[in-house]
């Protein structure tokens, strides 16, 4: 169906879940952020979620808020996102962009889709755009042969689940708890329910993110999802580091740990 679903199918055939890692572009600076994305790939991340910073990230917790604010302060531009996508594709991993809607809208939806595609990206995740509000975006993405990845939540009604699954390509992004991005001790009981409901609504591939930060959580989720998405814990490796090199080392170590986790889940 698409490069993303082919990749997820191949990973499923290996008897494991995919590891998907998010990092914002430009944190702590553009070069380091791109090096960090490539380092994650080398450490076992299958798909990188590339985050162009946005000034009003309403679905992000304090760690990512701070990182993207620093990135914007540092002068990051949207062109840096396309450069990051290209670097990830060149490194052999899947690249998807996770963007709030206004930067996409201001760039022009058709241009945005084309630029992601030309850089080697497979799809775009839209945390503040739902399919019913995003018809123009879906049209632009289809024209560029780019996957549209929408979110579902524990509060998603059956009607909306069908709508969202129907409009999603690549995979459906299931958030297992109600809340912004950030690490949680447990992703809770809702994860299994949301994933099951998405599959019942016809989703071929379901990946779970928000709240996941440890190898144990990754292993638990890998038992029943196509991909495990980790963001805040990876960003924290860079945020808490004394310098870029130690940040990259911490990131490699966590990515490798999580990569082991997604291989432990299937009995």
């Amino acid at each position: 169906m698409s490069a993303l679903t082919d990749r997820l199918d191949a990973i499923r055939a290996e008897g494991r879940a995919a590891l998907i890692g998010y990092l914002p572009v430009g944190f702590p600076d553009v070069d380091t952020s791109i090096r960090a994305m490539v380092a994650m790939v080398e450490a076992g991340v299958d798909i990188v979620e590339v985050g162009p910073p946005y000034s009003d990230p309403v679905l992000d917790g304090p760690v990512i808020q701070k990182a993207v604010a620093d990135a914007l302060e540092g002068g990051v531009r949207l062109s840096d996102t396309f450069a990051a996508v290209k670097a990830i594709a060149d490194a052999g991993a899947g690249a998807v962009v996770m963007s709030y809607f206004n930067p996409m809208l201001q760039h022009g939806l058709a241009d945005f889709a084309r630029d992601v595609k030309e850089a080697g990206g497979s799809g775009v995740i839209t945390p503040d755009l739902t399919p019913d509000a995003g018809e123009a975006w879906v049209e632009a993405a289809r024209a560029a042969d780019l996957d549209t990845i929408f979110l579902v939540a524990p509060s998603t009604t059956p009607e909306r689940m069908h709508l969202t699954v129907g409009a999603s390509r690549g995979f459906v992004y299931a958030t297992p708890l109600m809340g912004v991005t950030g690490e949680r001790a447990s992703v809770g009981d809702a994860a299994e329910r949301v994933v099951r409901e998405a599959r019942e609504a016809g989703a071929d591939h379901v990946c779970v993110g928000v709240g996941v930060s440890t190898r144990e959580q990754a292993a638990e989720l890998a038992g029943y999802v196509d991909g495990v998405i980790v963001g805040t814990a990876l960003v924290r490796c860079l945020a808490d580091a004394e310098d870029a090199e130690s940040g990259l080392a911490a990131l490699r170590s966590l990515a490798a740990d999580l990569a082991a986790g997604v291989r432990e889940g299937r009995a």
Binding site: V58, L59, F101, P127, D128, L129, T130, A133, F150, L151, V152, A153, P154, S155, T156, T157, R160, T164, T175, M178
Partner: peptide, 8 residues
């Protein structure tokens, strides 16, 4: 234009 979590 909001996250799906708020739509319901």
């Amino acid at each position: 234009f909001v996250p799906e979590a708020l739509m319901a």
